[in-house]
Design a protein around this nucleic acid. Sequence first.
DNA 1: TCAGCCATACTGAACGTTCGGTATGTAATT
DNA 2: AATTACATACCGAACGTTCAGTATGGCTGA
Lengths: 210, 210
Amino acid sequence: MADAARPARLENGRRDLTNIAIDCFARYGYKATSIARIAEAAGLTKGAIYYHFRDKEELLFAAVSDRLTQFERSVTAQILPPADAGRALREIARVCLDHATKSNHRRFIVTLMVEAIDTNARLAEQFRAMMHRFRGFLREIIELGQREGSFRGDVSASVAADVYAGAVMGAEIQYYQDPESFDLEGTVNTFLDQYVGWLQRDHPQRAERR
Amino acid sequence: MADAARPARLENGRRDLTNIAIDCFARYGYKATSIARIAEAAGLTKGAIYYHFRDKEELLFAAVSDRLTQFERSVTAQILPPADAGRALREIARVCLDHATKSNHRRFIVTLMVEAIDTNARLAEQFRAMMHRFRGFLREIIELGQREGSFRGDVSASVAADVYAGAVMGAEIQYYQDPESFDLEGTVNTFLDQYVGWLQRDHPQRAERR
DNA sequence: TCAGCCATACTGAACGTTCGGTATGTAATT
DNA sequence: AATTACATACCGAACGTTCAGTATGGCTGA
């Protein structure tokens, strides 16, 4: 006899509310997302939120932990078979694209990361550590490529990792700002062609560079 | 007999307050910046703000207009002598770096841009238009390089512009998040070497690319 | 030169609203 | 009967905003 218009209880309150909160935080950020808005999005009232979470910050940190671990897991999981470094870099970008377009995981991370920098020291530290791990992961892949000989050895792997992380994130933001007309996949693919090609070419020592 | 402890009036209220507001907005974003905080930073009271501005939004838009026009002016001004396209791209990055490190102009733009996407339609539209103009400007430079023959013609100038805009912005964000340890200049310079080199090489038709 | 006048640039208190958070009631499940 | 999973009603603080009042400086006419 189906559900009809039942009070619409949640099956797994904490988990469901976390997901709903993530949607709101990803769009409006932390400060501009009220508890009432999250409750309304869940079809509940504020009291229900405070039944599952001590306060707004606990909900925030639950959401952040959830998305951070889930994103990092899907990045590292996709790479476990240590394929060649070039393919690995392409795979990672693919995961980022998925998390940016098929869900709002990456927008949540980017939005909260920017907002937290000077408004929430604890959160900012978590995002800093996360970016540090991400860049470290990329650096290791690049160093692997350099040891294998498929990547040129005359560039700093860590700076190259920074370039990669920035290019992907910057493309994402342009997409969030204008999802209708910004070609995220094309932009990231073009960057990858250029970037991986650059890493694979050995010591080009380009003619003139004043 | 000097000033002593005068009530500290502003010489140019609107302008000074706009600059102070920009500092706050750049750090904390719009929502998390209270009128009281801006007033305190200016050494005034809340009422003084409302003498110069109708409401918080007018102050915000004044700040945005100020920084957007100023940034766009310094980008276009630096390029007026139509030097070769490669140098122009490097010059533009230089201007972005200056505005990111020597002032908070770019952080203001990036922070507010991310925050506005789904919280302030009018503001979001302004930032969308600004990014559109910026990418269009880059595209024209790249097309110039292509017509000149110094840039390869087998890539989309508009997608290449998107890559550039994203890479610079993504690097900036990593810097804002961790200004102590993130090497913004090195990252952007490395990107430029790779990017301009990529544009300058003609039809490499890289061997294998599955 | 100086009183009178007015515009400028504020202060400080108050108001209405919003928001995070709490206390308590209640229907359904076990 | 007790626990779970909420709803309802409310509190206090913070916030944006308003407004009456005031100190200051420049201008003007005598």
